[in-house]
C-alpha cells in the first residue's frame, strides 16, 4: 500500500520545482565584534574552488550569530571566517597564516588548508540547522 504513495512522491519531486527549504546556520563562541562572512556552496565542485551559491555577512554583537538561507534540497558545504576588524577581508600574517578565526560546516577541521568536502558536506532535506563553533 506504500508503493503508490512513494511513486507519487517521486513523481511530484521530479515534476515540480524543488521546494525551498530553510537552512539556519548558527555561529557560537564568537567574539562580539565585526562580522562573520559566510559562503554557502552547493556540491563538491563549487566547494573545491567554484563560486558559492550564496554569501552573507552577519554582524556580530554577541557570542552567537545566526543567518538563514532559502535553498533547494541537496548537498552543501559552508566556509566562514570572522572578520574581526571589519575590513571586509580575511587577514593573514606575513607568513601567510590566517589571523582571523575561520570555520567550516559540521565543524570540520582542515589540515594545512580548508576542511575537505567529505568532512564539511551536509544534506539539506527539510528545514536544516548547522551549528558552527569558532
Amino acid at each position: 500500500m506504500f508503493k503508490p504513495l512513494l511513486i507519487a512522491a517521486l513523481l511530484s519531486a521530479a515534476a515540480l520545482p524543488a521546494a525551498a527549504e530553510t537552512l539556519t546556520v548558527t555561529f557560537t563562541k564568537a567574539q562580539p565584534k565585526g562580522a562573520i562572512m559566510v559562503a554557502l556552496y552547493k556540491g563538491e565542485d563549487t566547494y573545491n574552488g567554484g563560486k558559492p551559491i550564496k554569501a552573507e555577512t552577519v554582524t556580530v554583537t554577541g557570542d552567537t550569530a545566526t543567518v538563514t538561507f532559502e535553498v533547494e534540497p541537496g548537498q552543501y558545504g559552508i566556509k566562514a571566517f570572522h572578520d574581526l576588524n571589519g575590513n571586509g577581508k580575511m587577514d593573514f600574517n606575513p607568513f601567510g597564516m590566517p589571523t582571523e578565526p575561520f570555520a567550516f560546516s559540521n565543524n570540520a577541521v582542515g589540515r594545512m588548508g580548508p576542511a575537505k568536502w567529505d568532512d564539511a558536506a551536509f544534506e539539506v532535506s527539510g528545514n536544516t540547522t548547522q551549528n558552527i563553533s569558532f
Binding site: L84, N85, D91, N93, P94, F95, M97, T99
Partner: peptide, 8 residues
C-alpha cells in the same frame, strides 16, 4: 600585533 598573530 593583530596582523602578526601566530608568527614564529
Amino acid at each position: 600585533r593583530d596582523d602578526l598573530k601566530g608568527m614564529a
